[in-house]
């Protein structure tokens, strides 16, 4: 079953088109990453899914229900995590979550307390008294506590420290293994490939590609070029992706480049998601 179904979604802000004819689906149990440059519309998609923004055109279905009809009951099935969410209220977080949980059909406060203990976070402070990363962790725990079926996470990985990130990624993986679905937006591309199943790349208000991670190496090759004037660099689809320790430059190129330039050196390292991300970003700039 498609947990999320987006059809011909378009959205503009002050006459600037942010999303243009977006189409994608997310199946149950998938861990999907939404990639794109800053301002590409990733957060807007999440805001529309959670009902915080209205779509201009198109349709969005969550668990088969049209979000335009304000199906508030499905919020029991959705968890949303974002830095914008503040549990600011004149009471300690523990007490707040106790009351917050009453709004949902089920809320596991014990889970929150245990996880907070594991992370070394005390729930006896007001929300504003926590650091940025701690706030995000609390929001994430609260989102997981009411046992949603779909988690929408906006740019969390850049806020958390390495150990917390690892902790939560394992929680999320566990969540997907139990049938939950995760849609995460992020800019830290090189980490995504270790825990995501699929990626959607957004560039210039539209989706450039949507692919399973295992399919990436099949489309491109990575090459090393010594000579800055090598004719392959003028070919369509060749994109610089980094510099190596020996001074050579790494590029990714279409798979059939060897047929045209048999003298080029193949980089034995695999094409990563980050390489692909850079490739499509630069293609978008041309």
């Amino acid at each position: 079953m498609n947990v999320v179904e987006v059809k011909n979604l378009s959205k503009s802000f002050q006459n600037v088109k942010v999303l243009n004819d977006i189409n994608f689906q997310i199946q149950e149990g998938r861990f999907l990453a939404l990639l794109g440059k800053n301002g590409s519309g990733k957060s807007t998609i999440l805001n529309i899914l959670i009902g915080n923004e209205k779509l201009d055109q198109g349709e969005v279905f969550l668990f088969g229900k049209d979000i335009k009809k304000d199906p508030y009951e499905i919020k029991n099935l959705i968890g949303y995590v974002s830095e914008k969410i503040q549990f600011s209220y004149p009471m300690v977080v523990g007490k707040f979550l106790e009351n917050y949980g009453k709004f949902f059909d089920s809320f596991d406060l014990d889970f929150v307390e245990k996880a907070a203990h594991d992370l070394g976070i005390s729930l006896n402070k007001q929300f504003d008294g926590y650091s940025r990363g701690q706030k995000m962790q609390i929001v994430l725990l609260a989102a997981l506590a009411h046992k949603p079926k779909l988690l929408l996470i906006d740019e969390i990985t850049s806020v958390l420290d390495a150990s917390s990130r690892k902790y939560f990624i394992s929680l999320l993986k566990d969540f997907t293994l139990k049938g939950g679905t995760v849609l995460i937006t992020t800019n830290i591309v090189n980490e995504v490939q270790y825990f995501c199943d699929e990626v959607i790349f957004i560039e210039n208000s539209s989706i450039k590609f949507q692919t399973a991670l295992k399919d990436i190496p099949n489309n491109f090759i990575k090459i090393r070029v010594h000579d800055a004037d090598h004719p392959i660099l003028n070919e369509q689809g060749v994109v610089w992706v980094g510099i190596n320790s020996d001074g050579t430059q790494s590029y990714i190129a279409p798979e059939d480049s060897f047929k045209i330039f048999p003298d080029i050196v193949r980089d034995l390292r695999a094409v990563t998601l980050e390489d692909l991300y850079i490739y499509h970003s630069q293609q978008g700039q041309k």
Binding site: N52, Y80, Q86
Partner: peptide, 19 residues
């Protein structure tokens, strides 16, 4: 200000309550 119904994408919009 201290006792307000939260505004703009705060937790109250995430709970399953009719608008």
């Amino acid at each position: 200000r201290r006792v307000y119904l939260p505004t703009h994408l705060e937790w109250i919009e995430l709970v399953p309550v009719k608008k």
